[in-house]
């Protein structure tokens, strides 16, 4: 039994999608301008023999041909951060500005938190929330290594994070992680409809609280690294009485529109504004991103 077969009807060029799951995915990294300049980071990588190729759609993102990317001096010194290519998308959709007040509701290990901090030039505030005590340590250590000094870490259940308001909120929700299968095929063996529906309850709770915490007219970005509509469009649909969707388009990156029908049921047409990213379209993992403007 192949779990991904359930997506045959919604994924364009499904055979290519299946074939892409078998292909090796090179590590990727983001240049951290909070600690160095682009040219200096590239010099360090070259000296250590790590081949780095910038993404076409994001010049700070690099594909790395290196066996021990995490041990590169550039990484240890915080000049780069090992981060999945598509994980760099949600902060760009959030588009944080220096001086704003931003909440990252499910923050650990902090790849997106620190990218947000970088985009803000360390000015303003990023509250990075992570409920799990054991996941606070990697979040802290990444923020410190990368010099993200405008980050304050909290440990609330995201569904009950107490108070805002925030200009922008990122909900990079816990999910079934099907989009990570190229790195770790085992993720698929844990997938089931029941698991997705259990996660959906949590995800809806997180998104509803994020909308409560955003200021009126504020922005909430919801993202997952899964294909399951139960955890994506169906979560976003539950919030459409409190927010409207804005279309997502990242120049140079091919997305597929969010689906408006699943398992015989119609979903809101507005959900086509959300974006699905598939491995065969950009040679990446998989991701889902929605951009909501609070009423």
């Amino acid at each position: 039994m192949d779990w991904l077969e359930r997506y045959r009807r919604i994924v364009p060029d499904f055979e290519d999608f299946k074939a892409a799951q078998q292909r090796r995915l090179l590590p990727s990294a983001r240049i951290n301008l909070l600690k160095t300049e682009r040219s200096r980071a590239m010099e360090h990588l070259e000296e250590e023999g790590a081949k780095a190729r910038p993404f076409e759609w994001y010049p700070l993102g690099l594909q790395l041909d290196s066996e021990r990317a995490g041990k590169l001096r550039a990484n240890l010194l915080g000049y780069i951060h090992i981060q999945e290519e598509l994980s760099m998308v949600p902060p760009l959709v959030l588009d944080p500005k220096p001086g704003e007040r931003v909440l990252d509701l499910c923050a650990s290990p902090g790849s997106k938190t620190t990218q947000i901090s970088q985009m803000m030039g360390n000015r303003g505030l990023v509250v990075a929330n992570e409920p799990s005590l054991s996941r606070i340590a990697p979040l802290r250590s990444n923020c410190e290594r990368l010099g993200a000094l405008n980050v304050a870490i909290t440990r609330y259940d995201g569904r009950r994070f107490p108070r805002g308001p925030f200009d922008k909120v990122l909900v990079d929700a816990p999910c079934s992680s099907e989009g990570r299968a190229r790195r770790d095929p085992k993720v698929l063996s844990r997938c089931s409809p029941k698991r997705s529906l259990d996660l959906q309850r949590l995800q809806i709770g997180l998104l509803k609280n994020a909308l409560r915490l955003a200021r009126a007219g504020g922005l909430v970005v919801y993202s997952t690294c899964t294909y399951a509509p139960e955890e994506n469009e169906m979560v976003v649909e539950s919030a459409l009485n409190e927010a409207r969707l804005e279309r997502i388009s990242i120049p140079g990156l091919r997305e597929s529109p969010g689906i408006t029908e699943w398992d015989g049921s119609d979903l809101s047409e507005e959900l086509s504004c959300t974006a699905r990213y598939y491995p065969h379209m950009n040679d990446t993992g998989g991701f889902f991103v929605a951009r909501l403007i609070k009423n």
Binding site: R123, L125, I136, E144, L149, N150, T154, Y156, P162, R163
Partner: peptide
């Protein structure tokens, strides 16, 4: 452009910004 805090035997540095009234695990960098 930075603020400083002490917690137990550590000093922390964080960007100079008003902090909302929340219970914090960490502020900026130790």
């Amino acid at each position: 452009g930075y603020r400083f805090y002490r917690k137990a035997q550590s000093v922390w540095v964080v960007s100079d910004v008003d902090l909302p009234g929340l219970s914090y695990e960490a502020l900026g960098m130790r």
